[in-house]
Design a protein around this nucleic acid. Structure first.
Length: 255
DNA sequence: ATGGCTATGTAGCATAGA
């Protein structure tokens, strides 16, 4: 089973890239973030024509998440239960017996901002919910844009990013608490090239200069981690015309 | 160098991203 996550930064603009990528990579399920589209305007037909099914939770302009899968998504649920949030950041579905959580963690803007406080509150609610899910779902995968670079090796310039949003100690601690629930960061289950990143700023030719961060992650419960044979970041879509600023991350699980 | 791109909503720029 091939699982993937990709922040597309507008599903409308990136739909051609996504359809090409589905055809070339043949994933079984893809978690999409920043669709930026209302549910009534979701491009369902185009994706279904490519042989995939969809579950989505979106809004105008901002946020928005979707799960695209070969087989029918079952037991679909949007949001974090018990956490009141107008921002559409989570959708969950069972696919081929795997409970798949697609998450778009708040960016946080700056460590001294209200949005940063919202990010930390959001992460606390997310952790509490995943702790309960872990008990009932042995095959649990949490994919998405975490907006957290877990360690300095995930940052092109750790000194410049020290204590900045995406890299601050409270955010990294929140990420470690998720790992503390028993999840594995699938990317780090394997040897990886240095300067492996999943996001590069649009400005300053950051991609060409390899100035990025690794903030998109695939967390796997122990039972799934034991089945994981590979995890990679596919930077090819970042080279295209009018790319998303994020690259997809792919994990392969043995059947 | 505190900018530098890009997308959206909306018709000039403001907001947000990371």
């Amino acid at each position: 089973m091939r699982l993937a996550t990709w922040n597309v930064n507008s599903l409308k603009v990136r739909l051609p890239h996504l359809l090409d990528w589905l055809a070339s990579q043949q994933p079984d399920a893809v978690c999409i973030q920043e669709t930026k589209v209302e549910d009534t305007k979701f491009p369902r037909e185009e994706i279904e024509a490519a042989g995939y099914q969809v579950a989505f939770s979106g809004q105008k302009t901002y946020n928005g998440v979707a799960i695209i899968s070969r087989s029918a998504p079952e037991h679909v649920h949007a949001g974090i239960p018990g956490f009141d949030d107008e921002q559409k950041r989570v959708i969950t579905a069972t696919i081929q017996g795997v409970r798949v959580v697609c998450a778009y963690v708040p960016n946080g803007q700056a460590v001294d901002s209200d949005k940063y406080q919202y990010k930390l509150r959001w992460l606390a609610a997310f952790e509490a919910w995943l702790a309960t899910e872990r008990r009932s779902q042995p095959r649990l995968a949490v994919l998405g844009d975490y907006n957290i670079a877990p360690a300095d090796e995930d940052v092109h310039d750790p000194a410049a990013w020290k204590d900045q949003v995406l890299c601050s100690a409270p955010e990294r601690a929140a990420f470690q608490r998720l790992l503390g629930l028993g999840f594995k960061d699938s990317f780090r289950l394997f040897p990886q090239a240095e300067k492996s990143f999943s996001w590069w700023d649009y400005r300053m030719m950051a991609f060409r200069r390899k100035m990025g961060l690794r903030i998109d992650h695939i967390l796997l419960s122990p039972q799934l981690a034991a089945r994981c044979g590979a995890c990679q970041i596919d930077i090819e879509p970042r080279r295209l015309e009018r790319p998303s600023d994020h690259a997809p991350v792919i994990a392969d699980l043995a059947d």
